[in-house]
Design a protein around this nucleic acid. Structure first.
Length: 210
DNA sequence: ATTATGCAAATGGTGTAGAG
DNA sequence: CTCTACACCATTTGCATAAT
């Protein structure tokens, strides 16, 4: 009923690599690693207390932080300390404190792409697949297609685009677009956001000049 | 006729926000 | 403090098209 009913915003505004949300909380925690309270974090990060509480709980379960004054039971009065600093960006944890698997496949493909010179989506799927993650050919195909559209990949051999010849489109990673370790995310709005650059790198081409 | 690619839409999973 | 609802990204699957 609050006038400021904040619905969830775009990924580039709250997810990893952006601002707001858990990222701010994590930064605030790092700034006060010796000891902090939920209220401090909430105020410093300018994040709703409930959100802070949720994330802190996840961090605690994940073993990233530890409560100092165990005697206190009230969450708002609890004092935590950072015991496991990833140093990087905010760990993506589920409420259970377990690492999020979402995006793992994406990252695997992104990493493979930067290592291998050229490839087709079949090879990418095979190379990206590990014992931990299995990349479906279809997924690789989709991701590859989007990246190519965004200019991250160069189509070096269109070959025989279709048919039973076994010559799929061959792509090559564009070094100029090697922006960083974070894989670009394909947003729901048909746009592609690069967490490394912190900006939209491609949109659905509003340009329709005839 | 068979097989693979390309495109598109549907579904699932996760995080955030709010209310009880 | 716990629970429910909602929004968004990621992934999977199906259909249409085209060549061997």
């Amino acid at each position: 009923m609050a006038a400021t009913k904040q619905k969830r915003r775009g990924a580039h505004l709250e997810m990893v690599g952006g601002k707001g949300g858990r990222q701010r909380v994590w930064e605030a925690i790092r700034a006060n690693r010796d000891g902090f309270y939920l209220a401090d974090i909430s105020r410093a990060a300018k994040v709703d207390l409930a959100t802070v509480r949720t994330y802190v709980q996840a961090l605690e379960r994940g073993g990233f932080i530890q409560q100092c004054n165990v005697t206190v039971k009230l969450a708002e009065a609890k004092q935590f300390a950072l015991v496991k600093d990833n140093g990087l960006e905010a760990p993506r944890l589920t409420a259970e404190g377990k690492p999020v698997i979402q995006g793992l496949i994406n990252e695997a493909m992104w990493r493979t792409m930067r290592m291998v010179r050229d490839f087709n989506f079949h090879e990418l799927a095979a190379l990206s697949s590990t014992t931990e993650v299995s990349v479906a050919p279809g997924t690789a195909r989709t991701y590859l297609r989007h990246l190519a559209t965004a200019g991250y990949l160069i189509e070096i051999d269109k070959g025989h685009g279709k048919g039973a010849g076994g010559i799929p489109t061959r792509y090559r990673f564009n070094p100029a677009r090697n922006s960083g370790p974070r894989p670009p995310m394909i947003q729901r709005t048909k746009s592609i956001y690069d967490p490394n650059l912190g900006q939209i790198v491609w949109q659905e081409e509003p340009d329709h000049d005839c």
